[in-house]
């Protein structure tokens, strides 16, 4: 089966039904390993046990941007190639991305209070992530507000691509401005500054949350395909009654 075959929603439903249980099992296994490693990781010499918040905060923060990146690629598929699954993929990803962004903000806030002495600071990193969260909510509202799915898809795709400008702003905000948030310590030139005892659990948790996203995204895409099938059948039923 080639990638283009997946463009057919029925084939996607068939393939995803086979893949989903394996993905769910892999997510549970990697998440269990990651949680065990997070629980048994040593305390940081400065932060103490609060460093454990990093193991859920950072994967959620990465995914908040990664999901928008996935939606941006899907939006290109909607606008350029009019791929039948592109809008389905973008629409299904938005609530999941919003949830990860919310968790990044919440866990960051809960980490910030003991470390910085404040839950919130209007610095560039925190503010740009808050804007990302609001953009997710805005996109979800847009899909709900426009009745015609193809018009909603195009409008959402444009908004998603415009919103993608925020991704490098989030990433480099800690370098471009003087922020309370620490600079990058994993994905940086010259390698990670984290000790292996923290880096390994962090990477395992990042893989676990990425698997979680892929699993939930495929399941949500299946739901969205079924919703569109219901809609088209209801329209067919209404036109049959009218005739």
């Amino acid at each position: 089966m080639t990638l283009i075959d997946l463009a057919n929603p029925t084939r996607f439903l068939a393939l995803s039904a086979r893949v989903l249980p394996w993905l769910a099992a892999a997510t549970v296994i990697v998440l269990t390993i990651g949680l065990y490693q997070s629980a048994t990781a040593p305390d940081d010499y400065q932060q103490g046990a609060t460093v454990k918040i990093m193991f859920i905060h950072v994967p959620n923060a990465w995914l908040s941007m990664f999901v928008w990146g996935v939606m941006s690629i899907a939006s290109l598929g909607t606008l350029v190639w009019r791929h039948p699954l592109a809008d389905v993929a973008a629409k299904a990803a938005a609530p999941i991305g919003a949830a990860f962004t919310f968790l990044a903000l919440l866990t960051g806030s809960l980490w910030g209070r003991p470390m910085w002495g404040t839950y919130w600071e209007w610095d560039a990193r925190l503010t740009s992530v808050l804007i990302l969260f609001l953009m997710y909510l805005g996109l979800m509202a847009l899909w709900r507000a426009v009745d015609d799915p193809s018009r909603a898809a195009r409008a959402a795709a444009v908004l998603t691509l415009v919103g993608a400008i925020n991704l490098p702003i989030i990433k480099f905000s800690v370098d471009w401005w003087n922020t309370l948030h620490q600079p990058a310590s994993v994905m940086r030139m010259g390698g990670s500054t984290l000790d292996k005892s923290f880096l390994i659990p962090l990477l395992v948790m990042a893989v676990a949350f990425t698997l979680l996203f892929v699993t939930l995204h495929i399941a949500a895409m299946r739901n969205e395909i079924l919703r569109r099938r219901v809609r088209s059948l209801q329209m067919m039923q209404a036109s049959q009654k009218a005739a």
Binding site: G48, A49, T50, K52, H57, L106, T107, L110, P114
Partner: peptide
């Protein structure tokens, strides 16, 4: 042992 900030750590994991 989660130290003096245990409530912040537990709340973070519980919320997630």
């Amino acid at each position: 042992s989660l130290g003096p900030y245990a409530s912040f750590i537990v709340t973070s994991y519980a919320a997630a």
